[in-house]
Simulated assay, not measured.
Amino acid sequence: MTILNQLIEVETEQGINIYNITPQIEALIASTSIQNGQVLVFSRHTTTALAINENEERLLEDVKVFLRKLAPESERYLHNDLHLRVVPEDEPMNAHSHLMAMMLSTSEVIPIVDGKLALGTYQSVLFFELDGPRKRTVFCQISGENIVLSRH
């Protein structure tokens, strides 16, 4: 079995944004000889997340509204009492972003079949920025076999 580790870099914009990183993952897989296996996609930040869902503009706007209702930025959060803890000078008041991230997921595992992601028709791998703008990285671990299995 082969195991390869790669990073995807995402430059994000202000606020809550959702990025389709499926093409970057597909490119990583295409650059390997792995035909059958899986890819682990892992968000390396506490205010970002991942999900597999439909990459449809109006749905993504609905998701942003839903997340803002779950953890409104205007609420009072203990994490935002920056004067009560040791923090860097540029530390944002971002408790709401941490809470949103906890309601989502930090990773997804997607099968690779015949060198391609085995996603369904409307499925995409979505990266959620909940506290942008930032430079982010997504860790991808591709594992599997370099052979094509024959189908009988």
Score class of each variant (00 low, 15 high):
Tyr122Asp: 10
Ile112Lys: 06
Ile112Ser: 03
Asp114Leu: 08
Glu108Val: 14
Asp114Trp: 08
Thr121Ile: 12
Ser124Cys: 11
Leu130Lys: 04
Leu117Lys: 07
Lys135Pro: 03
Phe128Arg: 12
Asp131Met: 00
Thr121Lys: 11
Glu129Phe: 02
Gln123Ile: 07
Gly115Glu: 03
Leu130Ala: 01
Leu119Asp: 00
Asp131Ile: 01
Val109Thr: 15
Phe128Ile: 10
Asp114Gln: 15
Leu130Tyr: 02
Glu108Gly: 04
Leu117Gly: 06
Glu129Leu: 07
Phe128Val: 10
Arg136Ala: 08
Val113Ala: 13
Pro133Cys: 07
Gly115Val: 08
Glu108Cys: 13
Thr121Phe: 11
Phe128Glu: 14
Ile112Arg: 05
Asp131Gln: 00
Pro111Gln: 06
Glu129Arg: 00
Pro133Asn: 04
Val109Glu: 15
Thr106Met: 11
Arg134Ile: 05
Leu117His: 03
Ile112Asp: 07
Asp114Val: 03
Thr106Trp: 08
Ser105Phe: 05
Asp131Asn: 14
Gly115Leu: 06
Phe127Asn: 01
Ile110Trp: 03
Ser107Asp: 14
Asp114Ser: 13
Glu129Lys: 01
Thr121Cys: 08
Thr106Ser: 15
Gly120Ser: 09
Thr121Gly: 08
Asp114His: 10
Asp114Ile: 02
Leu126Asp: 10
Thr106Val: 11
Arg134Thr: 00
Gln123Asp: 12
Thr106Glu: 12
Lys135His: 08
Arg136Val: 02
Arg136Ser: 03
Leu130Trp: 04
Lys116His: 14
Ser105Met: 10
Lys116Arg: 15
Arg136Leu: 04
Arg134Gln: 08
Leu130His: 00
Gly132His: 09
Gln123Arg: 08
Leu130Thr: 02
Gly115Ile: 05
Ser105Gly: 13
Pro133Ala: 06
Leu117Cys: 06
Gly120Gln: 05
Gly120Met: 10
Glu129Asn: 00
Tyr122Ile: 09
Thr121Ser: 13
Phe127Ser: 05
Asp114Gly: 12
Pro111Val: 09
Thr106His: 14
Val125Gly: 09
Gly132Asp: 06
Thr121Asp: 12
Ile112Tyr: 05
